[in-house]
Amino acid sequence: MPSETPQAEVGPTGCPHRSGPHSAKGSLEKGSPEDKEAKEPLWIRPDAPSRCTWQLGRPASESPHHHTAPAKSPKILPDILKKIGDTPMVRINKIGKKFGLKCELLAKCEFFNAGGSVKDRISLRMIEDAERDGTLKPGDTIIEPTSGNTGIGLALAAAVRGYRCIIVMPEKMSSEKVDVLRALGAEIVRTPTNARFDSPESHVGVAWRLKNEIPNSHILDQYRNASNPLAHYDTTADEILQQCDGKLDMLVASVGTGGTITGIARKLKEKCPGCRIIGVDPEGSILAEPEELNQTEQTTYEVEGIGYDFIPTVLDRTVVDKWFKSNDEEAFTFARMLIAQEGLLCGGSAGSTVAVAVKAAQELQEGQRCVVILPDSVRNYMTKFLSDRWMLQKGFLKEEDLTEKKPWWWHLRVQELGLSAPLTVLPTITCGHTIEILREKGFDQAPVVDEAGVILGMVTLGNMLSSLLAGKVQPSDQVGKVIYKQFKQIRLTDTLGRLSHILEMDHFALVV
């Protein structure tokens, strides 16, 4: 994948999101292997301009796509893939009243899908469409860049269908997702969380590099694949309309690839034109409109599966009536509230959605109805927002919020430890010299600072030695090549209790 991002070429006709291997024109390309080798690009942008032909009021008969309808489940399912879809609609009884809503608040519980998330729908649909058009064949390999849930859905379907599955996901995604993927037989590649989507090191860039190296491999490409919004247009939206008897006044959905909100909203605009569509985008993402909503100094966020630093091709923002931004604290607070007060075992993005819903639905009156999409299960986040310690460490809970008995030293300040200034190293000294210094002084790690004293990161003896043994660096290389740029900081005025929580999850903390 090139470091400079080429513009994806656009073909003359058809839909841009065809499933299957992508040609340089962004659509299915038939021909000899030699032709494909000559024409197939190194990668295709996940934010390529959409060429979708959908228009409100256009006859369904003019759609270029294969459409399906929700099917009634048999008493005995032939395999677990038949437990994807037909998820329950559940009334939220307490939270709406707590925040003064007059309307009825309903939750579409997508964590009841077989793999635990709304992404099971698009995973199965992308595979079925690729099999139907002859792209996927027995023994082929599926590769997908994902925040985890699409990966789980694909790995689940691949396990049943017999495909090899490789999932490329950023490091910030939970260990629970990784464990589930491994249990399903998927191979996992992790990428830096802070890598831009168009960087060769991003999950998108690495996935395309693997595709170019592995024979008979395919990126189904949830960011561009029409099967993504079509899955929701054909099934999720129809289920909502049936469950609500066609009567709903507002739908609120958090947005990642945009397939969920695009597919549902398009069908609702056709069948229930008075329904307002509300999009939820986390602070630090750029999906919301108008652009002024996205202006923030924050560039990272903890909530998973929603928000991006690019506009995915499948996201149709014209069908969203209003956007709201959400933050991590309210997302996790509301997710825990949904679990504790409503018994809905949902993930953090569901918290984002409901946090926005109780604001947006203030305009609705008694007798009206708001539906929220709860995308995934708490299963993926047992060591994250479900953990009091994690919430404390991230600053989303305060010590006084917890009532468990603490040891005698818990409320003492870090400054009472009488710490001395640490050994520091410059980023320009060599790895070999740094190892000598650390061994001589008896230290395992040291902060790396520039000549102005600005902290650049941390270097550890173990990481340097393993990097040297693996051949990633040489003793003569500058130590700046092996620094940890993500590390926890703590102030002298913070409590030892807070430091204790940090050290339970990290090997060190830097006192500043």
Rank of each mutant, 00 (worst) to 15 (best):
P2I: 12
Q7S: 05
T13H: 07
T13E: 08
C15T: 11
P16Y: 13
G20C: 03
H22T: 08
K25N: 15
G26V: 14
L28E: 09
K30T: 10
K30G: 10
G31M: 04
P33T: 08
P33L: 07
E37F: 12
A38C: 15
A38P: 10
I44G: 02
A48I: 09
S50G: 06
C52H: 03
T53R: 04
W54Y: 08
G57T: 10
G57W: 07
R58Y: 11
P59M: 09
S61W: 09
E62V: 07
S63T: 11
P64N: 07
H65L: 00
T68Q: 13
A69H: 06
A69S: 05
P70I: 11
P70N: 10
A71Q: 12
P74K: 10
P74D: 11
K75V: 15
I76S: 09
L77A: 08
P78R: 02
P78H: 10
D79T: 13
L81S: 07
I84K: 08
T87N: 06
P88L: 05
V90I: 01
R91L: 04
R91Y: 15
N93L: 13
K94S: 15
K97E: 15
K97S: 14
K98G: 14
G100T: 04
E104T: 03
L106E: 07
K108Y: 08
C109P: 07
E110G: 01
F112M: 10
G115E: 07
S117I: 03
V118I: 06
K119S: 01
R121S: 00
I122S: 00
R125S: 11
R125P: 07
E128M: 12
D129G: 05
A130V: 08
E131Q: 13
T135Y: 13
K137G: 07
P138R: 15
P138I: 03
G139P: 06
T141G: 06
S147C: 01
S147H: 04
N149D: 04
G151A: 01
A155R: 02
A155S: 13
A155C: 14
A155N: 07
R161A: 09
G162V: 03
C165A: 05
V168N: 04
P170W: 00
P170Q: 02
E171G: 02
E171V: 13
K172W: 00
S174F: 01
S175Q: 12
E176D: 08
E176G: 06
K177F: 00
D179I: 03
V180E: 06
V180D: 02
L181K: 02
L181R: 01
L181C: 03
L181D: 00
R182H: 13
R182Q: 14
A183F: 02
G185L: 00
A186L: 01
E187M: 03
R190F: 00
T191E: 01
N194E: 10
N194Y: 11
N194T: 11
A195R: 05
S199T: 10
P200N: 08
E201I: 03
E201W: 11
S202M: 03
S202P: 08
S202Y: 05
H203P: 06
H203D: 05
H203Q: 11
H203S: 11
G205K: 07
A207T: 07
A207S: 08
W208E: 08
W208C: 09
I214H: 03
I214Y: 06
P215C: 01
N216A: 06
N216H: 11
S217F: 06
I219M: 09
L220C: 03
L220Q: 02
N225L: 00
N225V: 02
N225D: 01
N228D: 01
L230P: 05
L230D: 08
H232F: 04
H232M: 03
H232C: 00
T235P: 03
T236Q: 01
A237V: 14
L241A: 13
Q243C: 06
Q243D: 12
D245Y: 08
L248N: 01
L248D: 01
M250Q: 01
M250P: 00
L251M: 12
L251I: 15
G258W: 00
G258L: 00
G259H: 00
I264G: 01
K267N: 08
G274P: 05
C275F: 07
